[in-house]
């Protein structure tokens, strides 16, 4: 028996919004430690890794490890039927071929349930090595989304250059060149507005705008985003999900032809 309950459906809606542009379907691996999802996008350029800890749920029970392959378009249809403040419960029997998603209004007067067929997905799990990153940048998630959106107008690619002075995002195309520099913030009143750079050595990497823009669909989940970079390895873009876990996106760099 698997049962996981969250106080507010809005969190699950935001999580789904954060992955459904990249993935058509995905396997949710459930164990007593929580729910994990790891999947590459169709073109195998990026990888999404979602971790939801069992202690972040209002109620969590998972008697046996369970892998639930879900069509994310179908799940989006179901979540559209929930009000943001509804409680949401996901339930499945061991070895079931369906999952039930139930919504309850705060006053318990409306209860709806949706049974969704599960899929058998060929899952290819990738081992992600531990990396000592050359640069780790923490910045407001909204600012990162704005930069990715703005620079996508000028080129398919963004060059991210991180030094101890700051981080520079550049795009160059037919229109010309765009550069956005962010300096590390001095003292800030609000932690969520800070730009913090931890640099071991400077790094310059090139990435496809369209994936960065897809990652920023996670912006509503978190006030801050963390970018971890190292020469010649994938960028890690991480959004914390408060009290519940995190979503990490890995993006393969572009290299000189």
């Amino acid at each position: 028996m698997f049962e996981a309950r969250l106080g507010q459906a809005t969190i699950l809606k935001k999580i789904l919004d954060a992955i459904k542009d990249l993935l058509n379907e995905a396997t949710f691996d459930c164990s007593d430690s929580g729910i994990q999802l790891q999947a590459m996008d169709n073109s195998h350029v990026s990888l999404v890794s979602l971790t939801l800890r069992s202690d972040g749920f209002d109620k969590f029970r998972c008697d046996r490890n369970l892998s639930m392959g879900m069509n994310l378009g179908s799940m989006a249809k179901i979540l559209k039927c929930a009000n943001n403040e509804d409680n949401v419960t996901m339930k499945a029997q061991d070895n079931a071929d369906t999952v039930t998603i139930m919504f309850e209004s705060a006053n318990q007067e409306k209860v709806s349930d949706y049974e969704m067929k599960l899929m058998n997905l060929d899952q290819e799990h990738l081992g992600i090595p531990e990396t000592d990153f050359s640069c780790v940048v923490r910045m407001p998630a909204m600012e990162f989304a704005r930069i990715c959106r703005d620079l996508a107008q000028f080129s398919e690619s963004v060059v991210i250059c991180c030094t101890k002075e700051g981080v520079k995002f550049s795009a160059s195309g037919d229109v010309g060149t765009a550069n956005i520099k962010l300096a590390q913030t001095g003292s800030v009143d609000k932690e969520e507005e800070a730009v913090i750079i931890e640099m071991q050595e400077p790094v310059t990497l090139t990435f496809a705008c369209r994936y960065l823009n897809a990652f920023t669909k996670a912006t509503p989940l978190s006030t801050q985003v963390q970018l971890s970079m190292c020469a010649d390895v994938p960028l890690v873009v991480e959004y914390a999900i408060k009290d519940l876990g995190h979503i990490r996106y890995y993006l393969a760099p572009k290299i000189e032809d």
Binding site: M40, H44, S46, G127, I128, P129, A252, E256, D257
Partner: peptide, 14 residues
């Protein structure tokens, strides 16, 4: 010109 690499070339199958 830059070439897009694949994520699976960095991470090994488990």
């Amino acid at each position: 010109n830059s070439k897009q690499t694949s994520i699976s070339s960095f991470f090994k199958k488990e």
